[in-house]
Design a protein around this nucleic acid. Structure first.
Length: 364
DNA sequence: GAGTCGTGGGT
DNA sequence: TACCCAAGACT
């Protein structure tokens, strides 16, 4: 008799997930769910925001620290945005942290501390778009939503050998994902597709021989799976220059200030510098100094952002009197690690003060 | 649809 | 080395 290929695939993938799912701090395993445990919408939401364009390994320690400090939405709503930004520092894409706080406030006040359960309502919340709304609805609330992230795009574009390049193919991919998603266990199915993409159907050298749904994979049968998904070539990134000034007081404190606006690194902490942007070079010379002092060239650091590369000339001066600074604040050496300093700023400070940030060993 | 928005790891 | 890429959202 005829069997439905899509049902076969869905069934096989769920069976594979039951045996081979990754163990992750935010995940409730199939076994735990069978014993009655349910995913906490707050933890699902927090993990999904952190995971946007960010590797699982990078997220783990941040997620653990966040849920320890803010165990529920009410706790996070009580926190200040600056507290959130300090805890988020280093994870990147800082608008996520600002939207995290906005969303926590909204859910706490407008939804009585309970996340709305549908993709449509979730998508209205700040920082929650097509992917995240579907992921939360499927994982936390059992809605059979089509969860499409980069992994799913890759898996489906290979299964069906989709020649349309991304992102134009996204509508078609979402429809196909919707067809495959089962009414039962939609959250596990979504996570199964993502685990498959992360561990088997990888961007390069996919392990097709051990793929649980390799049967009927069009890319495997007729093409080179590695050639999917098709993507438009990306533009090269320009190189920008600028200057950063490390003003050091007699007790070792460093002068910091807060970045304004809503764009790059908005709301984060920085050292004084020239006004570089993604599009415009800043003054890389000592003339950009915030005030006269015995500035000494302390090297040039390079930092690569998503769409441009920044070369910062770093200058430092010691024994600066505190009243010299007109704005900002002085941060003592032992407080520096707790500031909302993005990585590019930590690099600049380290160029002038090699021991400023003692790296703590990561446990694996 | 195309830009903007971080960072670290892998090849 | 110089790329590529990772559970995208927002404008």
């Amino acid at each position: 008799m005829l069997t439905s290929p899509s049902f076969d695939r869905t069934d096989k993938l769920l069976a594979w997930y039951d045996r081979h799912h990754r163990i992750l701090p935010w995940r409730v395993t199939p076994t735990e769910q069978m014993r009655g445990a349910k995913p906490d919408p707050y933890r699902v939401w927090l993990s999904e925001i952190m995971l946007q364009q960010t590797t699982v390994e990078a997220v783990k320690s941040y997620f653990t620290a966040f849920v320890e400090r803010w165990p529920d939405i009410e706790a996070m709503a009580k926190a200040s945005e600056d507290d959130i930004l300090r805890a988020w520092a280093g994870l990147g894409y800082y608008s996520r942290a600002r939207n995290l706080k906005k969303c926590a406030d909204l859910v706490a006040t407008q939804y009585s501390g309970k996340f709305p359960a549908s993709t449509a309502a979730l998508k209205e919340l700040p920082g929650i778009g097509d992917y995240t709304s579907a992921a939360i609805a499927a994982i936390a609330f059992g809605e059979p939503a089509a969860v499409v992230d980069g992994n799913v795009e890759r898996v489906i574009s290979r299964l069906f050998a989709i020649d349309t390049p991304l992102p134009a193919a996204k509508t078609q991919i979402r429809a196909l994902m919707g067809d495959m998603t089962p009414p039962a266990r939609p959250g596990d199915f979504a996570q199964a597709m993502m685990d498959l993409g992360a561990t088997i159907c990888t961007p390069r050298r996919p392990a097709c021989a051990i793929c649980p749904i390799n049967e009927g994979c069009k890319a495997l049968g007729e093409h080179d799976p590695e050639q999917f998904p098709r993507k438009a070539p990306k533009a090269q990134k320009p190189v920008r220059t600028g200057a950063a000034f490390i003003a050091i007081a007699d007790d070792g404190s460093i002068l910091l200030r807060k970045r304004k606006g809503e764009g790059l690194l908005a709301g984060m902490t920085e050292v004084p510098g020239s006004g570089w942007t993604a599009r415009i070079d800043g003054d890389a010379s000592i003339e950009a100094a915030p005030f006269p002092a015995g500035w000494v060239a302390s090297g040039v650091i390079t930092h690569v952002f998503t769409h441009f590369e920044l070369r910062l000339s770093v200058y430092s001066a010691r024994n600066i009197a505190r009243h010299t600074a007109e704005d900002g604040w002085w941060s003592a050496p032992e407080e520096l690690g707790g500031e909302a300093l993005p990585t590019v700023m930590k690099k600049a400070i380290t160029a002038a003060i090699p021991g400023a940030f003692k790296q703590q060993a990561k446990r694996h």
